[in-house]
Design a protein around this nucleic acid. Structure first.
Lengths: 256, 256
DNA sequence: CGCTACTTTGATATTTTTCAATCTTGGTGG
DNA sequence: CCACCAAGATTGAAAAATATCAAAGTAGCG
């Protein structure tokens, strides 16, 4: 069943429990679990049953590039689970600038509120597909389903770790180091193997990187070029970076 | 029943469900809830029943000033709920420096793990009293008690918001502004009313403040003195600050 | 094909870091 | 009770880095 979301005019697919498809079109929450695992990487936290129950309250929504999922201060009524695409979560500052507090992609949750209102804004960096979970339904479901709730708990722990690690990146005072740590972060998201030499995809602009790293966009640009001049990375194009000298790169990315 | 913790040699009190006392000596988890509230402030998330069930698996532990609650990389077996005192959570860097990712006090949780190991170290800044919750018991309890689990969920959301706000503080490039935002953070923790002119207590050293704000300790010291020279704050002693010109202070603390 | 948004590059100014020395303070022990 | 000691805090001067301002170059999109 396809319905039209009156509020935002985006296409929505209403799911029923029996219709949802297993892998790419089912709720997916990615995180590193508490327990010891062999891979040590992020995994799908949801079991088949949990996916099914979540699917019953979920609707698929699509956002074109640049669309706002929600605005800071707006009344919070939904949580989103990203299926594909990239979202930036940011706060606007009085000066007119903005700071990005997180980049979110497949398997991530956003829309967690405080006092009934969204704490920051969310905007699609690329075309985005996501599950929309009405807050009232979700709350009811979580309180009746400890297993599912536990998965959400793990996911939040994971996000907390990521946010706290981000603060360590931000404490650095060298732009090259910040950028290298940022690239490492992106790299670890998308690749399972450590020694990935596959190009890293950066959907965001230099401005966004700057707003995430607490740098001016000029400093970001200069660092990209400097790392390239030094033979540490190669910029295939603005949004595709390859690490050409892993040893030197890792050395720069090592927190100082 | 008083038992001795063999691992750390600290005094422990074993609680039984019927013995726990209601207010200051019962598990306490502070956070701003999702829903709209009148105060908008952090509240005790736990109901009487939840407190009781949590108390059954909890033991009170005491740590002298400077004691380590746990070390980064250590096998994670317990979560702590701070009753009183202040704890710093930090990561050591290869250079020998350290970065503080969070200060924790009454009502806070710490010890959340990844892959069965603690992600950062925790050290008592003052004398600390806390509940120790064995991870296996806690997990079992949470999975059987959705209401309690929901409270933990809210707490994690709260911590995530705090951590993300911290990144906005770290993006500033002026030491005065960072310090003012930090003082605001401390102030909002401890006071319910906004126009508190009560002195702010800073249990941590200048080094700790620096490690939290991504500054050198000299810069922190200079900012304290500068704000005092300008009549914005007054340092009663190293650990007690009073805001003497709220308007100017707020202006400096406004994110830029 | 041209416009617009994004990126790059250059020169200067501001700020903090760093290194070094001195000063305070809180605690200890005689 | 006082003196001493060591950790923590402050201050100064110089060096290093990014921010800022300004201008020109690219690239994607309609």
């Amino acid at each position: 069943m396809l319905v039209r979301d009156r509020c935002r005019g985006v296409a929505m697919t209403k799911l029923s429990g029996s219709h949802f498809k297993p892998s790419h079109t089912a709720p997916f929450i990615a995180a590193a679990p508490f327990e010891q695992t062999k891979s040590g990487r992020t995994v799908q936290l949801l079991s088949a049953g949990e996916i099914g129950r979540l699917a019953q309250i979920a609707a698929i929504v699509r956002f074109p590039k640049g669309a706002r999922l929600y605005e800071e201060g707006e009344k919070a009524d939904c949580v989103y689970n990203v299926i594909e695409g990239e979202v930036k979560m940011f706060s606007a500052l009085p000066s007119g600038q903005y700071r990005i507090v997180a980049f979110l992609s497949a398997g991530d949750l956003l829309g967690l509120s405080e006092n009934g209102r969204y704490v920051s804004s969310a905007q699609a960096i690329t075309r985005v597909r996501a599950y929309r979970l009405p807050l009232t339904d979700l709350k009811k479901l979580l309180r009746s389903d400890p297993e599912l709730e536990y998965s959400f708990l793990c996911k939040l722990c994971h996000e907390l770790r990521v946010a706290r690690f981000h603060t360590i990146t931000l404490c650095r005072h060298d732009a090259d180091g910040k950028l290298a740590m940022f690239l490492t972060e992106l790299d670890s998201d998308h690749s399972v193997s450590k020694k990935s030499s596959a190009p890293i995809f950066l959907p965001m602009t230099r401005s966004d990187v700057a707003a995430y790293l607490g740098l001016s966009l000029e400093a970001v640009s200069r660092s990209f070029r400097k790392l390239q001049r030094d033979g540490v990375i190669r910029l295939n194009d603005r949004h595709n970076v390859e690490i050409t000298d892993r040893a030197r790169f890792d050395h720069i990315a090592l927190p100082t």
